[in-house]
Amino acid sequence: MNAIEIKGLKKNYGGFTLGPVDLTLPQGCIMGLIGENGAGKSTTIKAMLGMISAGGSIRLLGKEISGDAAAVKQEIGVVPDEIGLPEMLNVRHVEKIMRDTFTNWRSDVFADYIKKFDLPEKKAFKNFSKGMKMKLGIAIALSHEAKLLILDEPTSGLDPLVRDEIVNILNDFTRDESHAILISSHIVSDLEKICDYIAFLHKGRLMLCEEKDRLLEQYGILQTTPDVLNDLGEGAVLGKRVTDYGAEAIVDREKIPQSFDTRPISIEELFVIMAKEG
């Protein structure tokens, strides 16, 4: 069973159109949804969670999403970009609320995360730092035996140490093969560390959705002369930068002669060039 199946997702906001978006995330995998600010990442996630009405079909954990999809959310941990807890609440209040929200709530697991994240139990939420707020959101999402985690920009605005900590926790979560994660971010380096699948969104359009290793295998950077690049066949060059000293291009390794020496590409380089060319 796939954790996420999206077909033909469309949403029109007047000045902005999302889609059509088709995504499939198998269980046991992590998918990174990459895109610049305003690319449609949050809109995609909101549509998945029934927060906005949109066209197309969405299945989460095998269940068709329609309306609020409240029942299926028992098995989903959602971490939005802003943890929307009222500022006067503290960790103890949150625990009591969540205990009566999720049928599989695990107070012991939550307590472990609170300890691990070093979060104060009696301090009001308004006095939490951004990193602490995000950690509390993640602790909630991980304490009710969720099978699917959906995180919207969880590492945005956090320092590298906290980001690294969060990335490690997410990695641990997918050790169980029935678990899956969809994580959106414009900080591509974070996603590159943990994701099995990468989806690029640019100006509301899904540019690609592919296994990360396949992308890294398929594409490379070729340093050569502009003339050589011009001689390459159609579709071989995804994007290029020409200077007085030569040319650097992102190429499809399958479409260039094997004798050409290419260096590995990063997901960030690939996204930037595809967005520019797209």
């Binding site: 969670l49 029934g50 927060m51 309306g67 609020d68 409240a70 029942a71 959310k73 028992q74 989903i76 959602v78 971490v79 939005p80 802003e82 943890i83 929307g84 807890l85 009222p86 500022e87 006067m88 929200t101 999720f102 959906i150």
Partner: peptide, 21 residues
């Protein structure tokens, strides 16, 4: 007002609650 400023509604809809709830 508290719900609006904290963006609670969006957060709550990520949990097993419907709009009706």
């Amino acid at each position: 007002t508290t719900d609006e400023t904290s963006r609670w509604e969006r957060f709550a809809l990520g949990m097993p609650y419907s709009r009706k709830d």
